[in-house]
Design a protein around this nucleic acid. Structure first.
Lengths: 190, 190
DNA sequence: GACAATTTAACGAACGATCGGTATAATGTC
DNA sequence: GACATTATACCGATCGTTCGTTAAATTGTC
């Protein structure tokens, strides 16, 4: 096999950064070619089904990352719940570059991506939410209240990313996450 | 003057609905033409500077709507703060169709819209946030805490819209707003 | 009020550029 | 030489945009 100039993983990682920044319609094959350094034909060699194939590979890559570095650590029963939550916050902060990079869930659910791609995004959200809900239940909350906390937190994540992008205030995400950490484990009051 | 087949206001309203749904790159002149009923060349007659001109008109239209129906009522000093907040929630719910329609602030800040357009969006966010902050101060909060409440609320709005679009759960927005109303006027606890 | 001159709105057709995609030839490695 | 990979060239379709024209309403002049 001839030597690959770039590994598939590194390539998908590049595609991911472009798509999360430019969205589905804003991401053109020419742009992908420019940034990855691979000519169009090489991209089509790697992804025979074209643009949708590339997007789907990126979504699957992100799903795997989410599962491995966010969801799995959330379910580590030997670690205290508060510590697992803090670990997740650190990981998520890195994933979103302290709130300066967009979430693929927002970007691709807005665009005209195909339905099977949107289904994958929905599954990612559901998985993250379920892990958070399980964590909240471990800390003593009822199932419905745990589900509400999980949803509130993920709403805060998505909202903080939007607002930070809107305002250029680099502390929006961090401030919001610090507040959410307190809220997530607060005493039940409603 | 030759008779207009559609008023400028109705035209901009149509453009707004298309752009908030398809985003900047996803909105093509052909699509605008199909939905408004005006041919492409007629759209250029109304908006000589082209697509950016149309987008800017939409943003200015939304800014005016925001000012008139959201911000001004928030600052009506003769009405109790809680009532003004409730009124805003009703208006915002209609504006976002109970969470089923996107916010232009999110959609256009993601796309490759020109910088002057993004500046307008930023001003809209700032104006809304400032009005909320003033309201929170009226209800007895310190300026920094009032600003934090305003930001938290707008983060919740943006986040709820993203999550509802992601999950197809039609109650996400309403549930989130009901929770935020309680949070906005709660006793200071941090 | 009659009627030419002007302005406005809308249109069909076409522009160059770029879109996503596809051949086919050249390259490099074993 | 076999074969995976990359490069060159090209395709039809669509992108945003511009042009030239027509029809209708307004304005100016008598």
């Amino acid at each position: 096999m001839a030597l690959q100039t770039i590994t598939q993983d590194a390539l998908v990682e590049s595609l991911f950064e472009i798509i999360r920044c430019h969205g589905y319609e804003g991401t053109t094959i020419a742009l992908l070619s420019d940034i990855t350094g691979l000519k169009k034909s090489s991209l089509y060699h790697r992804f025979p089904a074209g643009k949708d194939d590339m997007v789907k590979a990126v979504v699957q890559y992100v799903s795997a990352q989410l599962q491995q570095f966010i969801i799995a650590p959330l379910l580590e029963h030997q670690v205290p719940p508060e510590e697992r939550f803090s670990t997740m916050l650190v990981t998520a902060r890195g994933f979103y570059s302290a709130g300066n990079k967009n979430c693929l869930l927002n970007v691709l659910s807005l665009g005209e991506a195909k339905d099977d791609i949107k289904t994958l995004l929905q599954q990612d959200y559901t998985a993250w939410s379920a892990a958070l809900s399980a964590l909240a239940q471990e800390s003593g909350l009822t199932p419905p209240e745990a589900a509400a906390r999980a949803e509130h937190f993920l709403i805060a994540v998505q909202g903080a990313l939007v607002v930070q992008r809107l305002t250029d205030n680099p502390l929006t995400f961090d401030n919001c996450m610090a507040y959410q950490q307190k809220q997530f484990f607060r005493q039940s009051d409603d």
